[in-house]
């Protein structure tokens, strides 16, 4: 029982991080019908920028978080700018383009920060909450709350604001959207900016639980991608539920099957996806004209 509950706590904590990363995947997909394969590496960049500001420039954690998030969003806008000639024209080339940017970001990080990584500590030293032997770290709770809050905000933004609706419309039919007066290029830039900012926030939040190195985004990215698919690609509640599900699945699989846990996670994931290809919340498939 103790192991079970503690595994739930651990699974939810990392699940919340996967959810945050999956939100970025979903937002960009929701706006551009594009899977941004550089997303994990954008997260890595955000984590590096944030941790460098804390470690080398001695900035307060909150300042570092905001500054690195803004900088990463700017990089996201830059990526979108370079990909723009391909937008709405050649989705395949664009997918390859995002893969290329992933490599560029990783190589760039190696040039700037070297292959060795850096570590940041949990920003506040609050005592862990101990409920009958189940230990819950306040920081883990904070990540869960952040994921829930950001997910809710994004959900409301996309469904309730004019900009959010316009961004969704752009993905569903960019020509019809532009005929309505929506500047699709701008929507894409905004999607990349917000998506990259989300990645940076996830990277900053995850950094104290991990080690910031050039490949830190890879395994997070893969799990978040799985989370987004499981939840229904493009769905905001799906990203949250999918993230938590993958986190729990991973923690229980590794707990039960030890060294084979990872295999079990992805086999279970593949099984679930083949049973329900649209994912949990996948309400519609977006078709391109």
């Amino acid at each position: 029982m103790e192991v079970f509950v503690q595994t739930v706590v651990g699974g939810l904590t990392f699940g919340a991080i996967y959810a945050l990363v999956a939100l970025g995947f979903s937002l960009i997909y929701r706006t551009m019908a594009l899977v941004n394969f550089a997303h994990g590496d954008v997260l890595m960049l955000g984590a590096y920028l944030g941790s460098t500001m804390i470690l080398s420039f001695r900035l307060p954690v909150a300042v570092a978080m905001v500054a690195s998030t803004l900088l990463t969003a700017a990089v996201g806008i830059g990526i979108e700018r370079i990909l723009r000639p391909l937008e709405n024209k050649d989705l395949d080339l664009m997918l390859i383009g995002t893969l290329g940017f992933g490599i560029v970001l990783q190589s760039g990080a190696i040039i700037v920060w070297g292959t060795a990584g850096q570590a940041v500590r949990i920003p506040f030293g609050a005592a862990p909450i101990d409920i009958a032997g189940i230990i819950v770290q306040p920081y883990d709770l904070m990540i869960l709350v952040a994921a829930a809050a950001i997910g809710t905000a994004l959900y409301l933004f996309l469904g309730r604001t004019k900009l959010g609706l316009a961004m969704q419309a752009s993905a569903m039919d960019f020509q019809a959207a532009s005929a309505m007066g929506i500047d699709v290029g701008r929507m894409n830039a905004i999607a990349f900016a917000i998506g990259s900012a989300l990645a940076a926030i996830a990277g900053n939040l995850a950094a104290p639980l991990l080690y910031v190195e050039p490949t830190v985004g890879v395994s997070l990215g893969i799990r978040a991608f799985a989370a987004a698919m499981l939840g229904g690609f493009g769905s905001i509640p799906g990203a949250i539920v999918g993230g938590l599900a993958i986190g729990l699945l991973d923690s229980f699989a590794t707990g039960m099957f030890q060294g084979y846990g990872e295999v079990v996670t992805f086999v279970t994931f593949a099984l679930l996806i083949s049973l329900r290809p649209t994912g949990i919340f996948g309400e519609h498939t977006i078709s391109r004209v």
Partner: peptide, 30 residues
């Protein structure tokens, strides 16, 4: 579906490609 800018697009990807190559060449692993 539209053809416009396709060539320009290819050029961009080539540029991205050469950036990757350049980065690989300067990477400290070499």
């Amino acid at each position: 579906m539209l053809d416009i800018g396709k060539r320009a697009g290819t050029r961009y990807v080539l540029v991205a490609g050469s950036i990757i190559a350049l980065v690989a060449a300067c990477s400290p692993t070499a």
